Amino acid sequence: MTRIIDSFAEISPQYDAAFVDLWGCMHNGLTAYAEAVAACHAFRAQGGAVVMLTNAPRPRAVIAEQLIRFNVPADCYDTIATSGDSARLALFAGAIGSKVHHIGEERDLSFFEPLQMVENPVAITRVPLDEAEGLAVTGLPGDDTPEDWRATLLYAKAKGLPLLCANPDVIVDRGDRREYAAGALAGLYTEMGGESLYFGKPQPAIYDLARLRLAEIADVPDERIICIGDGIATDIRGAIGEGLDALFVTGGLAAAETRTRRQPDPEALAAYLAAEQMSPRYAIGFFR
């Protein structure tokens, strides 16, 4: 049964490393959550390592710069692992060919910068859809919905193009505004019979990358790692799939379903987890 805790400090001595989600846990897409920053500072002060584990479709250096703008200080974490980097490993290994059609924002173009972790990377060229060997999706432009891209996906499916999804999140909350993410488009493509390749949470590849980043800092066994996140289908499903303990932050994407104010309503939380068939070890209203 999932235990509701009031603060991370209640359980943090049991762990040597934390894989912490960003959007919904550390910030709201606009600014940092002060209590979450304090929790990370406290964990590092007691010797814990913090790996920011995010489904952002960009390289970790770009995310580090973004965190500064969001007032998440660099001294509250040790390293970053992104779904963008995980997907780039596959991209530059040739998973969807060398001629790639990009769907996403201009701000995501850093996704196509060469990755030093890949030996002899494939030379990637961004091309129009009719010349593409594959699709790389980093997000939905502007206020687009997946349905706005149905015609494009139908054409891609007819050509048999694989779709590389750099962010498996379906929705994100930017402040008080809910937006579609790349996972929504990949999900529609799969429903249409297309081939979608995922590399962020809950897929194993991003956890392999997170462990590699952690290994650069400390040797921590899985039983001493905890995953913290607000996405039941990404953060929590991924952690459980990896055999890692999970702290479910209910005040993010599932705030309404769990009737979270400062803490989740126990009955609503139990009903939500039962419906999702998930059993994280711990839950908390907001990461603090």
Results as ranks from 00 to 15, higher is better:
K159T: 04
K159S: 04
G160M: 09
L161T: 03
L161A: 03
C165E: 06
C165I: 10
C165G: 09
C165K: 04
N167I: 05
P168R: 03
I171S: 12
D173F: 11
D173I: 10
R177K: 14
R178A: 05
Y180P: 00
A181S: 10
G183D: 04
A186L: 09
A186D: 05
G187V: 03
L188Y: 06
L188C: 06
Y189Q: 02
T190H: 07
E191T: 14
G193R: 08
G194M: 08
G194I: 05
G194Y: 03
E195N: 14
S196D: 05
S196R: 03
S196L: 04
S196K: 03
Y198C: 01
G200W: 00
G200F: 00
Q203R: 13
P204I: 12
I206F: 06
I206H: 01
Y207V: 03
D208E: 15
A210M: 08
A210R: 03
A210C: 12
A210G: 08
R213T: 09
R213F: 13
R213K: 15
R213M: 13
L214K: 04
A215Y: 14
E216P: 14
E216L: 15
I217D: 13
A218R: 15
P221Q: 12
E223A: 13
E223H: 15
R224Q: 10
R224S: 06
I225C: 01
I228P: 01
D230M: 04
G231H: 02
A233H: 06
A233T: 10
T234D: 02
I236S: 00
I236F: 02
A239T: 06
A239G: 07
I240M: 11
I240Y: 09
G241C: 11
G241E: 10
E242T: 02
D245G: 00
L247V: 08
F248L: 09
F248H: 07
V249K: 00
V249W: 00
T250A: 06
A254D: 05
A255C: 15
A256H: 15
E257L: 08
R259H: 14
R261F: 11
R262N: 15
D265H: 10
P266I: 10
P266R: 11
E267K: 14
E267Q: 15
E267P: 12
E267F: 13
A268E: 07
A268D: 08
L269V: 11
L269W: 07
A270E: 13
A270I: 11
A270K: 11
